[in-house]
Design a protein around this nucleic acid. Structure first.
Lengths: 114, 114
DNA sequence: CAGTATCCATGAAGATACTG
DNA sequence: CAGTATCTTCATGGATACTG
């Protein structure tokens, strides 16, 4: 598994961000967690169609990179909660801009004014 | 090639944005074009390591989806310029947020405060 | 419940050579 | 110059079954 220490960050901050969350599932995971702490199964439900394997892989790498926090509760059956770290929360304005632009784009499609 | 008409946009605006520009190369192409009109070779140089094939594929799909404009000049040798459309320009705040967060993240790495 | 272990299919990307 | 055409390689994702 890719370790944080071996992840060469690009000079450009935009490229850095693209590298860290620049893919479909990670973006949606952040979106989910901006609504608060979630359990594994809750995340899976919110991310329609994601497989266990893919979801757990993304969560793991995002935890390693410091974006999310994983809390295990010693209950039976086991309970695991995922939440954003402080730096993860700082992605909120970015996701908000994605939301805004997505709405603008969808509107522009309807008016044929792409 | 995926046609705009057959691209089902998700309900969620965030997912829509993720679908349209949620990958490494597209983000960097937008970043480049926010600095102004560029020729194919200029883009290739700015996007270190991208192959002709991959670059032209992304440009084509982004043009189809209305994000960028392609202008061909009937010169010899031919000159082609790429620029953002009006809706493409509206990605500027989003890229700005990516820039800001990328800087924050890189800083946090240095201070071990991830 | 929250994953892991496999296996398979798909496709995105890279290198190279060639063309209008 | 600005691509296209191929071919190969590799990573990612999906389905399913199983486990602490």
């Amino acid at each position: 598994m890719t370790d944080l220490k071996y992840l060469e960050l690009p000079q450009c901050p935009v490229a850095t961000t693209a590298l860290l969350i620049g893919d479909h599932w990670k973006i949606l995971i952040i979106r989910e967690l901006l609504n608060g702490t979630k359990r594994f199964s809750e995340l899976a439900k919110g991310l329609d169609g994601v497989s266990n394997k893919v979801l757990s892989q993304h969560l793991k790498i995002m935890e390693i990179r410091g974006l999310i926090h994983r809390e295990v509760y010693a209950e039976v059956p086991v309970k695991v909660e995922y939440s954003l770290t402080s730096i993860g929360w700082k992605l909120k304005p970015l996701i908000r801009e994605m939301w805004k632009w997505g709405e603008i784009y969808k509107e522009s499609i309807h008016t044929n004014d792409v």
